[in-house]
């Protein structure tokens, strides 16, 4: 889902950079207001885990691969704003050190994977948690965060005129509906384990 350089038009690139910078500024403000000492190492290890999880590509179908996103996991543990900052740090390192995702597309990648996936995922989790339970809400948040992020990515590519929306949206949504299933299963296993051993680690709004 990491968009490389050359895939986005200048307009879409600039617009997504502006939206992401504003979003990250808001997240930094929100996190600073309620950051506790115990959250600092948790944010550090979470980012290490997100990086590792995103590095492990696995085959999906028709000769394509995918990887976990771990945005929903981060937001369930750290809250949406701290999770967005964690995801942004991971994306910055992936972009500059590993050339995974382009520099001009970094704004779009932050928008998709840090803002839409983490904050959107948390929104789904907090609504679903009231109606079902933590585990079902986790599964829904994990799956939807991946599908939502990939759909926004498809919209950006279509808005850039790079590829028709009728081609890119179904392709991205279908591939990520499948990786989202694996994402949901892995996220549920981890949250289930944390609920048993360290329930206090879950974010309390």
């Amino acid at each position: 889902m990491h968009i490389p350089d050359g895939f986005l038009s200048v307009k879409v690139s600039a617009a997504t950079w502006v939206i992401s910078l504003c979003g990250i500024a808001l997240c930094l403000k929100k996190v600073t207001a309620r950051l506790k000492d115990k959250m600092i190492p948790l944010m550090g290890v979470m980012s290490a885990f997100v990086f590792a999880a995103q590095m492990l590509n696995f085959p999906i179908f028709a000769g394509t691969s995918g990887h976990l996103l771990a945005s929903a996991l981060a937001s369930i543990l750290l809250g949406p704003y701290a999770a967005a900052i964690v995801m942004t740090c991971v994306l910055v390192v992936q972009c500059f050190l590993f050339q995974d995702g382009g520099i001009t597309a970094l704004g779009a990648n932050i928008l998709n994977m840090a803002l839409v996936a983490a904050i959107g995922g948390y929104g789904v989790y907090s609504i679903a948690k009231k109606m079902t339970g933590i585990i079902v809400a986790t599964a829904m948040a994990a799956w939807l965060s991946v599908v939502l992020a990939s759909s926004v990515c498809a919209l950006e590519l279509a808005a850039s005129g790079t590829v028709a929306l009728t081609i890119v949206l179904p392709a991205m949504a279908l591939a990520h509906a499948l990786t989202g299933g694996i994402e949901a299963a892995v996220t549920c296993l981890i949250i289930n384990f944390i609920l048993k051993v360290r329930k206090d680690l879950l974010y309390k709004p």
Binding site: A62, T64, S150
Partner: peptide, 11 residues
């Protein structure tokens, strides 16, 4: 880790 392309690379 698979070397298969992701959906964007494949497209």
């Amino acid at each position: 880790i698979t070397k298969l392309p992701d959906t964007l690379e494949k497209m």
